[in-house]
Every structure is written in structure tokens, then in C-alpha cells.
Computed example of a mutant assay.
Amino acid sequence: MFQEALQYPRDGDSAVKTIAIGGVLLFLSFLVVPVFFVLGYIARTLRSVLDGDAEPPVFDDWGDLGMDGLKVFVIGFAYSLVPTAIALAAVVASGATLGLGGSGSGSGLAVGLIVLVAGLAVTVLSLAVAYVLPAAIVAYVRSDNIAAAFAPSELRRFAFSRTYATGWLVAFGISLLAGVVIGLLNAVVIGAVLAPFVTFYANVAGAYAVGTAVREMPAVDAGGETPDARPAA
């Protein structure tokens, strides 16, 4: 699947044009609005892969693309609230502890413990969000209903499947590879210019990996339990 995912963004007659548009949009991400179109394209890619289309979609129907991206952004923002809230709570608790106890060693120890526990909790939850979020987006894409992205019954079908886990690991591996490439590009002057294009390419390839894994899950299509739907060991 890894090699197929890396090849996927290059398939089709419009591949170069699509990657160019996606890279430019990410390059302009500081304007915020272009991000919605990129997220919308990723959702469209997932939908296309789930439907069994062999080639990546193109950038068109910009209104629908932007609306799709806005919904994906809302889903991602909602999932990020929990680790963010814990981090903010740790900051508040640390400030309150220092305010009540002064600058003594006891207060310093308490603050250090709060930071350690909060840091571990944020790390674990962030990893969990990173794993579940693609499944949530797939649930939305499959149903065209944003509420499905938060439905436990929908998420369990994906998150506890070995097939989904494999697709996610492939997408994660592609993301790491993109990070290495971007790091190498940053060593040269044009690195900052090319990085958005590499990022877009990796996101499309990752969407293919996740979408392909979900498409191969019998439990998702049948809506029932299969051996693959058992929790991964």
C-alpha cells in the first residue's frame, strides 16, 4: 500500500496541475481561506478513493470544495479542544499554585508535577486525536453528515480495525517521509517554496492510504462485525 499511496497523487492527466494548485494554496495558508480549499480537496480525495476511482480528483466546484473544507476544519477543531483545554488548565493551575504558595520549593515541586502530568495527558490525547481524526473525517465523508464524525458507533468501526490501523500507519509513514524531505529542502534556499507542495503531496497520498484501508473493511460496508473489526492486538 505504501508504494501505491506514493504513486497515487501522480496518476491522471491533471496530476501536475492539481499538485501545483494544492501547493500554492498551502503556500497562501496564512490567508486562512486557502486552507479550507485544501481540506475540501482532501475530503474529496477520500470520497473518490472510497468510490473506487483510480485517479485523484481535480480542483473544481470551488464552492462545494470550500464548504467541505470548512466542515473538515470544524471537525478537526472540535477534536483538538480536549488536549488544548488540558494544556490551558495546567497553565491556570500552575499560576494558581504559585500565587497561593509563593516561590518556595514546595510550590515549585507542585508546579513541576502539574506540568508533568498535564504534558503526559496532552501527549497521549494528541496521539489519540491524530489516530481517530482521519476516521472521523471518513465518517463524515461517507455520510455527508458532520454529526457522524462524532458518533461512537461510526468511529469504532474504523478505529478498532486492523485494516484501518494499517492504512493510518502508512499515512503516518508518508508524513514522516515528507518531514525528512522538507528538512532536506530547508537546507537550500528554495526549501521554503517547495515545502507546501511536498506537504500537499503527502496529504493526498495519506488520504489514499486511509481511504483504501476503509474501502477494504467489510465491516464498514456491511455495518456489522467481522473478524477484521476486532480490536487490534
Rank of each mutant, 00 (worst) to 15 (best):
G52A: 02
A54W: 07
E55H: 10
E55N: 13
P56Q: 05
P56W: 01
V58I: 05
F59P: 01
D61L: 01
D61A: 09
D61T: 00
D61R: 08
L65W: 00
G66A: 15
G66C: 13
G66M: 06
G66Q: 04
G66I: 00
M67L: 14
D68T: 01
G69K: 03
K71W: 07
K71Y: 09
G76D: 15
A78S: 15
Y79G: 06
Y79A: 00
S80R: 15
L81S: 03
L81D: 06
L81R: 00
L81P: 02
L81E: 01
V82F: 14
T84S: 15
T84P: 04
A85N: 11
I86G: 03
I86M: 08
A87I: 12
A87L: 14
A89R: 06
A90F: 11
A93K: 06
A93R: 07
G95N: 05
A96Y: 12
A96N: 14
A96K: 06
T97M: 12
L98S: 11
G99E: 07
G99F: 03
L100P: 06
G102F: 07
G102E: 06
G102T: 06
S103L: 10
S105D: 11
S107N: 02
G108Q: 07
V111R: 02
V111W: 03
V111Y: 01
G112H: 12
G112I: 05
V117Y: 15
V117W: 15
G119H: 03
A121M: 05
V122M: 15
T123L: 12
V124E: 11
V124Q: 14
S126D: 04
A128V: 11
V129Y: 13
V129W: 15
A130E: 13
Y131V: 09
L133W: 10
L133P: 13
P134A: 02
A135F: 05
A136M: 05
I137K: 02
V138R: 02
Y140T: 03
R142N: 03
S143P: 07
S143H: 14
S143W: 04
D144L: 08
I146Q: 03
I146N: 00
I146W: 06
A147E: 12
A148K: 15
A148N: 15
A148D: 15
A148I: 04
A151V: 07
P152A: 05
P152N: 12
S153E: 15
E154L: 08
E154V: 09
L155W: 11
R156K: 13
R157F: 10
F158C: 07
A159S: 10
F160C: 04
F160W: 10
S161F: 02
R162Q: 13
T163L: 12
T163R: 15
A165Y: 12
T166Q: 14
T166K: 14
G167N: 11
G167F: 09
G167V: 08
W168A: 08
W168E: 09
L169I: 10
L169K: 13
A171E: 13
A171T: 03
G173H: 05
